[in-house]
Amino acid sequence: MSEYILEIKNVTKMFHGLVAINDLSMKVKKGQIYGIIGPNGAGKTTLFNCITGIYTPEMGQILWKGKEIKGTTPYKIAELGILRTFQTIRLFAEMSVAENIMSGRHIKSKQKWYNGVIPTPAYFKDEKEQWMKVGELMEFFNLSQYATTPAGDLSYGVQRRIEMARALAAEPELLILDEPAAGLNEHETQELTDTIRKIQAMGVTIMMIEHDMEMVMSLSEYITVINFGAKISEGLPSFVQDDPVVVEAYIGSDEEDEHE
């Protein structure tokens, strides 16, 4: 097995004949924080949707620990240990924060098929264990005070934390973050940066799309830049930052980069 936990090889994804991702390749090392940047509409989220099984690419390979996972349904991807957050937050809005995070424990729970109807001692034990874990995560993300609050009633910054806690509850090997800092203020962004470092320290590999250049440059160990669905540059943050192709892509696009 190679040193790479996730390999994307020549992936192409089309919508109604339009190319959203064009012959894209990248390799993610275990334990790495991997950044993906690029102007809006470049195909970054589409790439994440291909990895997590929401879309199936027409061409190419997606290898997870050397095994092809292209076309695997999303829930099985999660069972493999690939968990994600969404660019537009997708929480179970009416449900409490604790119940939202509990969804991450779904794949870790050992309840038997009949436990939905008949409780057994093992079921009670499992139920308790999962809630304990939820409690730990609420403490880690400083959410305990909101345990019973409906997730949809909370502020944007808090919702982003709940989404990360939920993904982390599933004990992922690879955590995919789609613009985790979007909509956060400076203080919250700083907290988020620290949190991501702590998650990395737990041994979780992280892939992240982010527009906040300061954050993505300081966190990422390796960066791929995408524009119009294709890779235009990759390398260490210091290299990518000064790559004229990248500068051109950002200035040439409609997108205003508010952080420069």
Binding site: T52, I54, T73, P74, Y75, I77, A78, E79, L83, R84, F86, R90, L91, F92, A93, E94, M95, S103, G104, H106, I107, R166, A167, A170
Partner: peptide, 10 residues
């Protein structure tokens, strides 16, 4: 509540 989010959680 959210089919896609649910699937993404396994």
């Amino acid at each position: 509540k959210d089919e896609i989010a649910a699937q993404s959680m396994g």
